[in-house]
Amino acid sequence: MTFPPKMVLFDCDGVLVDSEPVTNQLLQRNLAARGLVMPYDKIITLFVGGTIAGVAQQAAKMGANLEPDWVDVLYAEMFEALAKQVTPIPGVHDMLDRLDAAGIGYAVCSNGPHAKMDITLRRCGLAERLENRIYSREDVPTPKPAPDVYLLAAARADVAPADCVVVEDSPSGAKAGKAADIYTFGFVADTDPARLEPICDALFDDMAKFPALLGIR
């Protein structure tokens, strides 16, 4: 990998927008109401970085009594909460300004649906600057940890994966970056570094530090 890269591919939740505490606490309460009581740290370990459909399958196997339309019910609760509470990850706007000044492209690649990103990115003032560069697992055959969404974003920008870097905060997402053969940073401001260190090429915990890691001075 030669630094600086031509493009940065960001995960969304927990990397650009600070949505994980809101959604994970909501999920913990929702599952407890359906008979599956879990500590918060287990919610994070089992579910962060996956899809809500995947959460439904695993929670049902663990004994949760989920209604047939549970995924839609949860998303409705989640969208309402995020529209009121989500904030950008500290330092994200300044960091993206640095990328713009250096002429480095970027996109967001999420396992979440477009409807969710529309709420979180818009509320955090990121939607306009990411217009036409927002990719979801809805756009590809297979969600993370498959590499599909990252490969799609690179292809749409006409940038080779070898000229990109990925930023992820979950093992599932980091595995997707590595499966795409892309240099992968683990963002560990709110993630146990031990979960990402075996997968990622490098770790960092502050968006203010990120431009320097890319070779931007």
Rank of each mutant, 00 (worst) to 15 (best):
F10P: 01
F10A: 03
F10M: 06
D11E: 02
D11S: 02
D11Y: 01
D11R: 08
C12L: 00
C12D: 09
C12V: 00
C12Y: 02
C12N: 07
C12P: 00
D13N: 02
D13K: 01
D13A: 01
D13W: 01
G14C: 06
G14H: 02
G14V: 04
V15Y: 07
V15N: 07
L16I: 06
L16A: 06
L16M: 09
V17Q: 03
V17L: 02
V17H: 09
D18T: 04
D18E: 09
D18H: 13
S19T: 07
S19E: 00
E20A: 10
E20P: 13
E20W: 10
E20Q: 08
P21D: 08
P21G: 12
P21I: 02
P21K: 07
V22T: 12
V22K: 02
V22R: 09
T23W: 03
T23K: 09
T23P: 00
T23C: 11
N24T: 05
N24D: 11
N24L: 07
N24V: 01
N24F: 07
N24P: 01
Q25I: 02
Q25D: 07
Q25S: 08
Q25Y: 10
Q25R: 11
L26G: 02
L26A: 08
L26T: 09
L26I: 07
L26D: 05
L26Q: 05
L27I: 10
L27H: 01
L27F: 03
L27Y: 01
L27A: 05
L27R: 03
Q28Y: 10
Q28V: 06
Q28R: 14
Q28L: 11
Q28A: 12
Q28F: 06
Q28K: 11
Q28I: 08
R29S: 15
R29A: 15
R29Y: 08
R29K: 14
N30F: 14
N30S: 15
N30G: 10
L31S: 13
L31T: 14
L31M: 11
A32D: 15
A32M: 07
A32I: 13
A32V: 13
A33C: 14
A33P: 10
A33K: 15
A33R: 15
A33I: 09
A33F: 12
R34A: 13
R34G: 15
R34P: 14
R34N: 13
G35E: 13
G35S: 12
G35L: 11
L36R: 12
L36G: 14
L36A: 13
V37T: 14
M38S: 14
M38N: 05
M38P: 04
M38V: 08
P39W: 10
P39V: 02
P39A: 04
P39E: 09
P39C: 05
P39H: 10
P39G: 08
P39T: 04
Y40C: 00
Y40M: 11
Y40V: 00
Y40D: 02
